[in-house]
Simulated assay, not measured.
Amino acid sequence: MRQQHVESNREQIAQENHLGIYMRDAQGSARPTGFQITIFLIFALVFAFGALIFLMTTVSVLRIQNWYLAAVGLVGTLVCGYFAYTSFRSILRRKYSLYLYQRGFIFQERSLLTVFRWDDISAILHTEKLDNLGHTNHVFAFQRKDGKQLMIDNTFADVLEIGEQVQRAVNKALIPEALAQFKAGKELPFNGLSVSQAGLKKGEEVLPWDEADVEIFSEVTISKKGEKRSWYQMPLQKFANVPVLIALIRYVRKGQEDWGTHLTDEVYSDFDVI
């Protein structure tokens, strides 16, 4: 009954937020936090200690007939065992679900449902890290315009497929909006960088478009023409909304064919900014 209630709520929320056609879902399980592991270990140790005390008390009962101590030891052991069991079960039962729709997705943690519409997402970042076994861990971070954040990683078996699908959909919403704001003369913020028709702005310093050389490989690097020293530099995996920046560069470059810009084919194809 509870599962049916959650599914009914999810369908209602999808309709209220105009998410459109349901497409697919993905299941994930959260890694236990350090706090959860600590709580479990505390109760497990207390349970083991209580079991030892109960055993010693039982031996004592056989000698001095002290049934009161035996009862206290038994109750204490059972209570600690129960809390150790519930702590361990809560670690195992932390399951996540992501339901993908035509115009957004719903993220479910137990009975809590959170909506992310494509046009409500203001930033998206994809990072890759190698673990100790040499496996690649993909992390996709999303941020809504109201500041709400969400991350999905390899706890979802098909995180790369889901993440890239979401990324393409978000780009199709972000890029037209960014281009419209750019054409209207507004300033668009990125990671420590702002972009406008006047040029690229870092702090209070503005670098006009026709004086800028931009390279996007493993890093976003901006230099003043004729200078080797970087005017701005940021690792690609820390730079949110790279496809939006590329789209703006393409738009500006149409009227400035001699403007030095170097973008890898991988950047173009991976981010689908056409």
Rank of each mutant, 00 (worst) to 15 (best):
V267C: 07
K254G: 04
I249R: 06
V214D: 12
Q233T: 04
G147L: 09
G255K: 10
L150A: 12
N137V: 13
L236C: 08
E211Q: 10
K183V: 10
D265F: 07
E187N: 10
V252P: 00
V267T: 03
W231E: 03
H135P: 01
E211G: 01
K238G: 13
E215R: 05
W259G: 01
Q256N: 14
A123M: 11
D158Y: 08
S223E: 08
L179F: 00
V139K: 14
S194G: 04
E164L: 14
K202T: 01
F239L: 01
K224C: 07
K225G: 04
L188A: 09
E215N: 05
L263R: 03
G203L: 06
E161H: 14
Q181D: 10
P208A: 02
M234Q: 08
K148R: 15
A184F: 05
I124H: 11
H138E: 10
Y232C: 09
N241M: 08
W209L: 03
S230P: 06
D258Y: 06
A247N: 00
Q167G: 13
T136S: 14
S218A: 09
D210W: 02
L245H: 02
A240M: 07
Q197W: 02
I216V: 12
A184M: 02
L207R: 03
L130D: 08
Q149F: 12
N191K: 12
A173D: 12
E257A: 13
I162Y: 14
Q167D: 08
K238V: 11
F156R: 13
I152S: 13
F140I: 10
H135G: 08
K228Y: 01
Q165R: 11
E161S: 13
K228N: 04
I222W: 07
Y232R: 08
V214F: 09
I216D: 04
T136A: 10
V214M: 11
